[in-house]
């Protein structure tokens, strides 16, 4: 177990900066998820920590130690790759034990460690198989076993679930979470899937174009997005954002153009309701009138696309609201709106 610290970490390929000035403190045993769209530099950051990529600027500390120039093996980290990167010619047992062999761990000790990990991951009956004879989920577990067997101080996951189908992904999420509880090691997990991030992370780091947009718990990230990027990136469907230049909108949402001078307004599709009594927490719900354009059913919920003051707006509602047509009235709680200034940053109430 160890803390991890990035200070002014930067990476560029030639003149193209990929990671810019990242500062981040990760505590012992914390589960951190680096989340962002593809190309945001999250994988590069992880690979710099792993030692697979050189550092262009700044420092990385693991525990108290500066690891900038250390070989991966000296950093005492373990990594699970997106492709699992299992050695195809080795059995499960050899795959898991390979690092121990390189570290010259005694054979008896090695067998013990591998057996323990296999037990923990329910791989015991598969120890003699080769990767080609395993299912996707089993391969994933072998990759985790390979990482766990060395009891590293930091676990790195590079989009480990993206090769699995949706159902397996859910199950593996639980297993990863359970593993983290059991071993209590620092985990740094890279993904572009916000569901994984929300369910797994102690804290989420949102990255965009090589910069950190926000660090916070899943709840903080969802409820208090720091800026429009985070607000739009987290949550599905994305938050509705309107330009406040239209006085009608200002009036409808009861926005006073006071000292903060808000420019944009946002409200999540989940916080717009078709019935007034669904609005909780206020005596009198505010409302807007909109025209329904289309609606799509997603099983348990329905997304209704509406036209509001020349802008589109999406409402998520329970599926039994079958056929909504024409002009409808949407109710909402005035405290659940987000206001952003001209720099797209959130104005705190």
């Amino acid at each position: 177990m160890a803390s991890v610290q990035f200070s002014n970490l930067a990476k560029s390929y030639g003149d193209t900066p990929i990671v810019k000035e990242i500062n981040l403190d990760i505590d012992h045993g914390e589960f951190i998820v680096l989340l962002g769209p593809s190309g945001c530099g999250k994988s590069t950051t992880l690979r710099m920590l792993a030692g697979l990529e050189s550092i262009s600027g700044g420092d990385i500390y693991i525990g108290e130690e500066l690891v900038n120039d250390l070989h991966p093996i000296e950093r005492n980290i373990a990594m699970v790759f997106q492709s699992y990167a299992l050695y195809p010619h080795m059995t499960v047992e050899q795959n898991i034990g390979f690092s121990l062999e390189n570290l010259k761990v005694e054979k008896a000790e090695r067998i013990k460690l591998v057996t323990n990990v296999a037990e923990m991951l329910e791989l015991t009956p598969l120890l003699d198989r080769k990767p080609k004879d395993l299912s996707g989920g089993q391969r994933q577990r072998v990759a985790m076993g390979r990482a766990m067997v060395r009891s590293p101080e930091v676990f790195l996951f590079d989009e480990p679930l993206s090769n699995l189908d949706a159902k397996l992904r859910g199950q593996m999420r639980k297993e990863i979470k359970a593993m983290h509880k059991k071993v209590q090691t620092t985990v740094i997990y890279v993904t572009h899937d916000q569901v994984e991030a929300m369910t797994l992370a102690d804290r989420i780091v949102i990255l965009n174009e090589g910069k950190i947009e926000q660090i916070g718990t899943p709840k903080q990230i969802f409820d208090q997005p720091k800026n429009t990027f985070v607000a739009k990136f987290i949550g599905a469907p994305a938050m509705n954002i309107f330009n406040l230049s239209n006085p009608k909108i200002q009036h409808d949402f009861g926005v006073s153009m006071g000292e903060h001078n808000p420019v944009l307004l946002g409200i999540r599709p989940q916080y717009l309701y078709l019935n007034e009594n669904e609005v909780k927490g206020v005596e009198k719900a505010a409302f807007v009138d909109v025209e329904v354009i289309s609606s799509e059913l997603l099983g348990a919920s329905r997304h209704i696309k509406c036209k509001y003051q020349d802008q589109t707006l999406v409402v998520e509602t329970a599926s039994h609201d079958a056929t909504v047509k024409g002009i409808v009235r949407l109710y909402f709680n005035n405290t659940q709106i987000h206001l952003f200034d001209e720099n797209n940053n959130t104005i705190t109430h």
Partner: peptide, 9 residues
């Protein structure tokens, strides 16, 4: 890369 992480020279 996996081998590097696994400490293979």
């Amino acid at each position: 890369e996996a081998a590097i992480i696994d400490g293979a020279n």
